[in-house]
């Protein structure tokens, strides 16, 4: 318990809080620059304001979910470090897994304050930072070249047109939507796969709850999309995803008792 109070000490809060404040400043700088550039490019200011409103409402519920991750990890790693990890580079599904693996490797058996030592904590913290830093490295080293390459298809399509080849302009958006269909399908299918084969092939013992929540959320979204077609209902766009999630999550509280 003495270690836990040291992990929650003002010094650790200062180290972690300072980095979080730095990340917040970076977000503000990027947001202000984008807003000003958008204005200079002639993007409708009301559109940008709608994006900001929609992003705020969209982010609230997942953020509360992330806060639960902080609470869950705070019992073994103290509060400031999980707070930093999940405010910054980290991801909800990733942190516990890596922390658990690191805890086993340092020989404390698992992620628990009972066996935690200062050396184990520092090792776990280092590994949590190290394992997930690659995206930052790639985007720093190759981000400019890669994004320049992606904006090049205009010239390719013009060349293709001249040569009589297939024109790929316009496929970029289709590919993005397709990628998203793939992403969503990988997750929705996993809920069905878990029901059927979660405990071994065709055991049918998995929980129905995630699938039921996804269906309720989709149905609510469908209602939002219908309402959106009504005149003067554009404002609904900003709340449709967050609203659908909220309805589905409230349903989960009740469905959790029966499913």
């Amino acid at each position: 318990m003495e270690l836990l109070s040291r992990l929650n000490s003002p010094v650790i809060y200062l180290i972690c809080g300072g980095i979080i404040a730095f990340v917040a400043v970076i977000c503000v700088i990027f947001a202000v620059r984008a807003y000003k550039a958008g204005k200079a490019l002639g993007i409708d200011v009301s559109k940008m304001k709608r994006v900001i409103t929609a992003s705020v409402t969209f982010a609230v519920l997942p953020s509360i979910g992330i806060l639960l991750g902080v609470i869950a990890l705070s019992g073994s790693l103290g509060t400031p470090w999980p707070w930093l990890r999940l405010s910054g580079i980290g991801a909800l599904h990733y942190e516990t897994q890596v922390a658990e693996a690191a805890a086993e490797a340092v020989g404390i058996g698992g992620l628990s304050i009972a066996g935690m030592t200062p050396e184990a904590f520092v090792t776990i913290a280092l590994l949590m930072s190290f394992c997930i830093m690659w995206g930052m490295i790639f985007v720093t080293v190759n981000g400019k070249a890669y994004s320049n390459k992606l904006t090049a298809p205009k010239n390719d399509s013009q060349k293709a047109k001249k040569k009589g080849k297939l024109n790929l302009s316009g496929f970029g958006d289709i590919a993005m939507t397709a990628m998203f269909i793939g992403l969503v399908s990988a997750y929705i299918a996993s809920y069905i796969g878990s029901i059927v084969s979660g405990d071994g092939r065709f055991t049918f013992t998995g929980s129905l709850l995630p699938l039921a929540v996804a269906i309720i959320s989709a149905a609510t979204m469908g209602v939002f999309m219908r309402l959106r077609k009504m005149k003067g209902a554009e404002w609904l766009d900003s709340f449709s995803v967050a609203g659908s999630m909220l309805v589905a999550m409230i349903s989960a509280i009740f469905l959790g008792k029966i499913l």
Binding site: V184, Y191, L211, A214, S217, S244, A248, A252
Partner: peptide, 9 residues
């Protein structure tokens, strides 16, 4: 699941 349900629709 709530997020991906809405996005799937």
């Amino acid at each position: 699941p709530a997020l991906f349900g809405a996005m799937a629709c």
